[in-house]
């Protein structure tokens, strides 16, 4: 049964590809469209990888959407001074927000759901202020950064580094241990508070990177940039087989395959001609369905 559960996301991926290929008469897998899907998937997968570290501990990070907005705004604002400042500033913004999230959770003992939801609100407000309720264009020279090679190498680097840290170091193992049983992990010597802050720091850092990638692709930072991105990430992760409870069955593969699935799904819906408003509704239903199918009701009482 466990083995079967592990391959369900892969089956889902194949089903999505087959379904939309059929519905679009093969347009889904055309070269032009694959490039579109890739663009969408890069940001989604990197965002998902960051949140994986948080979810492994059984916590949530819902601040992503606004973090994407504010880090993009920071990138665009500072790019106007020197283009070289844009990437570091976006990442620093992400790290700072991650530290705040992690600290509020670990040391002030506020549930992660509440902390990151509040931060989501606050950052959206700041994004609107930073963009003067409009948008900040990026210097023309920077648009050349939006090329396949750069994005592909960033994506591969992030995947490899994250996979290594998550699977082969005490960092990843400690984080999953917290998800499996926080008290027991502590009693086995896991520095729980430090790990919690670290997880949000990683999540924030990668989201900052996403903010930069996004602003480079669209050419401007907008006050609405990243709206509902946090829910896209959550949906993608659950589709990819990530347990909401975290723990030892939380796998990094979920981030990659889930991100890919949602990118395909969103793109496919556009191709088929489903209205944007309806797309959100469909995503919501899919999210609910994925949670229903993957939720381990028996083990949930054992967790928190």
């Amino acid at each position: 049964m466990r083995g079967f559960k592990r391959i369900v996301p892969y089956i889902g991926l194949v089903l999505i590809i087959v379904l939309f290929s059929a519905l679009t008469g093969g347009k889904l897998l055309s070269f032009r469209n694959l490039k579109l899907i890739f663009n969408q998937a890069v940001v989604l997968i990197i965002g998902c990888i960051g949140v994986t570290f948080v979810m492994a501990q059984g916590s949530l990070d819902l601040s992503q959407g606004s973090l994407l907005g504010i880090s993009g705004a920071m990138a665009a604002t500072f790019a106007a001074i020197t283009p070289g400042l844009s990437l570091p500033l976006a990442i620093l913004t992400g790290i700072a927000v991650g530290m705040i999230n992690g600290t509020l959770l670990a040391f002030f003992k506020i549930p992660s759901f509440i902390v990151t939801l509040c931060v989501l609100f606050v950052l959206r407000g700041l994004t609107v202020i930073a963009t003067h309720s409009g948008s900040i264009p990026l210097p023309f020279a920077m648009l050349s950064l939006d090329n396949f090679r750069i994005k592909a190498s960033i994506l591969v680097t992030v995947i490899l580094a994250a996979y290594y840290a998550y699977t082969y170091t005490s960092l990843g193992k400690n984080m999953r241990a917290i998800g499996s049983g926080e008290t027991s992990a502590r009693y086995s010597g896991v520095p729980v508070e430090r790990m919690k802050v670290l997880a949000y720091l990683i999540s924030g850092l990668l989201c900052g990177l996403c903010g930069w990638l996004n602003v480079v692709r669209t050419g401007a930072a907008d006050s609405k940039t990243g709206l509902l991105f946090e829910l896209d990430i959550l949906t993608a992760l659950v589709l990819g087989g990530m347990p909401l409870t975290g723990g030892s069955s939380a796998k990094l593969q979920s981030a990659i395959i889930g991100g890919l699935m949602l990118a395909l799904l969103s793109n496919g819906m556009v191709l088929v001609g489903i209205k944007a408003e309806l797309q959100q509704a469909v995503k919501g239903v899919i999210f609910l369905l994925a949670v229903y199918l993957s939720f381990e009701r028996e083990s949930v009482v054992m967790i928190k």
Binding site: T183, S248, M302
Partner: peptide, 13 residues
């Protein structure tokens, strides 16, 4: 609650 991570394997514990 304190001695074991029930949702982890024997190896991980």
């Amino acid at each position: 609650q304190e001695g074991l991570m029930l949702l982890s394997s024997i190896r991980e514990n």
